[in-house]
């Protein structure tokens, strides 16, 4: 069984930690606790009878004051870009982080997670931009850590891309 370093990247408060908690432990909490530095979890995933072990690095969200450390990104096998559907500016942060990752290694698999789908009526995300990204080859999935929508699928898709890579 192979192990992979997986990073969750995105702006602050987009729900990265909640997605990991939901995916790894199956729980969700409304309480918001900002991540300091990094949290690490582990999860087994089986794709086409192939077992994989994800070492998930849940990195602290990036904003105008905090930048994701390069050292944390080193050796990443794949990553999830997480944005908050209700905050359009989080997409820009995700694209920025993606570009940083691509500078290191252009072949890294990734998936864009548009989180908080349970609040879709409040979404302000630029749908056109999303469409453009999809057309340029981005894998996107709408997720909700609260309702568990798309969470497992997102990780499964990432695992699938890893195997194909």
């Amino acid at each position: 069984m192979k192990k992979y370093k997986i990073c969750l990247l995105g702006s602050f408060a987009v729900g990265k930690t909640s997605l990991v908690q939901r995916f790894v432990k199956g729980i969700f909490s409304e309480k918001y606790l900002t991540t300091l530095g990094v949290k690490i979890d582990k999860k087994m995933i089986t794709i086409d009878n192939t077992e994989m072990e994800f070492i998930i690095w849940d990195l602290a969200g990036e904003d105008e004051f905090i930048t994701v450390r390069d050292s944390y990104l080193r050796g990443t096998a794949a990553y999830l870009l997480v944005i908050d559907g209700t905050r359009n500016e989080t997409l820009e942060t995700a694209i920025s982080l993606h570009e940083r990752m691509q500078q290191e290694n252009q072949s890294l698999p990734f998936v864009l997670l548009i989180n908080k789908s349970d609040l879709k009526e409040q979404w302000t995300i630029d749908a056109t931009k999303i469409t453009e990204l999809k057309q340029s080859g981005w894998n996107t999935i709408e997720t909700s850590a609260k309702t568990n929508k798309g969470v497992a699928e997102a990780f499964q898709l990432l695992a699938s891309n890893l195997l194909k890579n």
């Binding site: 370093k5 530095g37 990094v38 690490i40 979890d41 582990k42 072990e53 070492i55 690095w57 944390y72």
Partner: peptide, 9 residues
Amino acid sequence: NLVSAMLTA
């Protein structure tokens, strides 16, 4: 595995 990753972090 977690210890290893956390140590690295």
